[in-house]
Amino acid sequence: MISLFTAEGLAGLVFLFTVAVTVSGALIAVNSIRLPRAVTGLAVCFIGVAGLYYFLNSPFLAVMEMLIYVGAVCVTIVFAVMLADPGDERKVGRRSAIAAPVSFGVGALLFWGMALLGINTMWPAAAAKLNDGSVKAIGHSLLTSYGLVFELISVVLLLAIIGSLALARSGRDKS
């Protein structure tokens, strides 16, 4: 039994808080009716996931999560919400009454099955670590083992920039 007033106990308490932030943010993101509120829930969920990355020995990925997801992706979604003006979710859509329970059932079934699979599997014992997983080790393997993938993803990002500009620009001069 770990006492609450040790470093490990406090870390465990912070971990529980991080999990609560993640789950509540995801709940807001999925269930809220207004889309700006859903985007805010998504940002809260990503802040919690960044905390989980910190607990998984990777402060670098935590910073990247904050920068890319909270700082870039959520802001871009807010920008699109402003441009497209979706209004309230309850005004749109004429679906049948069983759509909401069926989708909840599918999501709950997937969660139940995957969580059961993850908990019941006997994972092999941890292998000996080759390095410490620090930022230096990440940069080293990013430029040696994963150099080709690194170049490929820069091409993908360039194509995404050009493609989104071309998509959003077309049809503008007509209206």
Binding site: A29, V30, A38, L52, V92, A100, S103, G107, M114, A115
Partner: peptide, 28 residues
């Protein structure tokens, strides 16, 4: 961590099926 990830995945699938706007599906 696997259970938290499964929970996030299940909620994402639920939102993907449940949402009626394209931006809501993108969030999921």
């Amino acid at each position: 961590y696997l259970a938290i990830a499964a929970l996030l995945f299940g909620m994402g699938i639920y939102g993907m099926l449940h949402r009626r706007t394209l931006i809501g599906m993108l969030i999921s």
